[in-house]
Simulated scan of single mutants.
Amino acid sequence: MVDLTRVPRIENVDAATFQADYKKPARPVVIERMTESWPARRKWTVEHLKERAGDVVVPLYDSQPSRDHKHQHAPAARMPLGEYMELLEKGENDLRLFFFNFFNTIPDLTEDFEYPDVGLKFFRKLPVLFMGGKGSRVQLHFDIDLADIMLCHFGGPKRVLLFSPEQTQWLYRVPFSFSALFDARVDEPDYEKYPALRQVRGQVAELEHGDVLYIPPGWWHFVEYREIGFSMSLRAFPRTPRNLSRMIYNLLVLRTVDGLMRKTVGQPWNDRNERRAVTRTNQRLAQVR
């Protein structure tokens, strides 16, 4: 892997300490006991979710980059949640539930958790679920909305690799995208093909059932499921003028341009951006050398 240090772990935290030690300096942290009183910590298992919401049809995403005229956020399949979870139990590890807002679809799940008192103003209508099977991987990316994220994890262990916005210059970011180049992998780097990855410095968090990972705004993350697991992210949207303006630009300009060009130009647009990801990153590396 690229050069990684471990994300610090703490048992719990009050709002003043969280703001001073983690929010303001933008430092990731794993909080072990934050979910201790939540019903979700006891109840959220594969069997419980199948019984409670097995008939809900959900969008699923695969691990392949979108090609040709396909929108980069288009799902690969749709099926009932219970059917999907049965596939996971049989070994499925490509299809993933990604950013599924259950506020209106499965509203009773909102009774199983509390919004942490850490000085963040959470957007309460956007609790979202992520789910994957053993061996599932999520491509390196950062979140378009630049939110403060509390990633509350349940089920089997999950590894998250994290990289600060300052590392963007070495991560082969694809233009008009919020992802790194698909095969410029930080978990299994090919330094001959992507030499700038040698410059990357990041952190790793090993999440167990009930852990909460704080991801600061704009931080890149790569996810690997060690077993069947599911996470819920609670999000606080940007409050600073700089991040708020960047979020609006990401949503209204970059995403719109990319969607339009994929629809009209197709694969040549994708190829152009992937070439530029390599060219620009390697040019920066040459300047440093």
Rank of each mutant, 00 (worst) to 15 (best):
T256P: 01
A76T: 10
L244M: 10
L4T: 04
L213K: 08
A205M: 13
R289P: 03
I31S: 10
N93D: 12
S37M: 13
R235F: 03
Q167K: 01
L129D: 00
K23W: 04
W269D: 06
Q267I: 09
V212F: 05
A76Y: 02
H73W: 15
Y249G: 05
Q287I: 05
G119P: 08
F222C: 04
D3A: 07
M79T: 08
Y84R: 00
D187E: 07
R276P: 02
P165S: 00
E47R: 04
G54W: 08
Y194M: 00
M247Q: 15
Q169D: 06
G132V: 08
Y172R: 11
M150I: 11
R52P: 06
F113Y: 02
R124T: 09
M247W: 13
R6D: 15
W269E: 08
P75D: 00
N270S: 05
W38G: 07
F100T: 04
G156Q: 09
D21C: 09
F18W: 00
P25M: 07
R242S: 09
V138R: 11
V29T: 07
V174A: 02
Y194W: 01
K121W: 03
M85I: 10
I106P: 10
S233V: 07
A74I: 00
L254S: 09
F142W: 13
Q283T: 15
C152E: 09
T5M: 03
N270P: 06
